[in-house]
């Protein structure tokens, strides 16, 4: 049996002074080892909540998050939306942070962090502070910080959202390369339909509120993918298909007050 990760009938409610908000309702899906799965949905549909539940950063109101077939509990590492780099640590120390908390000695953790920083093409910036780097470089550092812990499951919460289109394309390519070099399970949350199709082997379409899975779509593109020279007619069709699914939600969103 291959190692997998399974959520069954997941529910999550938030209490607020104006009553409870059901963020997720009856979410079930399975992801196998080394699969790259994208979760796409309109803003406010509970995508981030879903990821935080899987990361163990918050507890579900109901339902089960289950890891089966692993030798031990799989290591999960999250890449946060706004990087969450520590402003007061230089790049090397930021990347090594996840190793430091595991009690790994400075020599080893700096060596491992340096290797990953080199793979991300940031060796010249190891001693710089985050504010000295561009947005794209900072997001690379955030990815390196997650990867250095050698996770079994990489959780990514709209990591490229704030980047410009060209930088995003480069980082998407890099991410796929890193994933091919060292396969792992990736759960990638995005509101960008095209990004979801280009990156994922499979796309889960989430609707809001309460967030639930509208469809599971297998992307018919072969890996390795070449994102820069792309011209795939099937992408356009898929994009249209997914958009048709979430359009009513987006329309409804525009007519109601935001959650916060």
């Amino acid at each position: 049996m291959t190692a997998q990760f399974q959520v069954t009938n997941l529910n999550k409610n938030f209490s607020s002074p104006r009553g409870d908000v059901i963020a997720l309702e009856g979410v079930s899906f399975v992801v196998s080892q080394d699969e790259f799965v994208c979760i796409v949905g309109p803003s406010g549909c509970g995508k981030s909540t879903l990821l935080r539940l899987i990361a163990g950063l918050t507890e579900p109101t109901g339902g089960i998050v289950n890891f089966s077939g692993w030798l031990s509990t799989p290591r999960r590492a999250m890449v946060f939306q706004d990087t969450g780099l520590f402003a007061w640590l230089n790049i090397l120390e930021n990347v090594a942070f996840g190793l430091e908390t595991q009690g790994i000695a400075q020599n080893e953790r700096h060596q491992r962090a340096s290797e990953l920083i080199a793979r991300m093409g940031l060796s010249d910036f190891a001693r710089h502070y985050p504010y000295e780097l561009s947005g794209g470089m900072r997001q690379r550092v955030a990815i390196a910080r997650a990867l250095v812990t050698e996770p079994d499951i990489l959780l990514m919460d709209e990591p490229f959202r704030t980047l410009d289109a060209q930088t995003r394309l480069v980082l998407q390519d890099e991410l796929l390369r890193l994933w091919r070099e060292r396969p792992m399970m990736v759960l990638f949350v995005t509101h960008d339909i095209e990004e979801a199709i280009l990156l994922g082997n499979r796309v889960l379409v989430l609707s809001n509120r309460p967030g639930h899975i509208l469809a599971e779509i297998v992307v018919p593109l072969e890996q390795p993918r070449n994102l820069t020279g792309r011209s795939h007619p099937e992408i356009e069709a898929l994009r249209w298909q997914i958009w048709k699914m979430i359009e009513p939600t987006v329309q409804a969103n525009l007519k109601r007050a935001p959650m916060q």
């Binding site: 950063l57 946060f80 969450g84 520590f86």
Partner: peptide, 12 residues
Amino acid sequence: LTWEVARHYNAR
């Protein structure tokens, strides 16, 4: 977010 990152990496 800083607290969340710290918690995510089990900083204690």
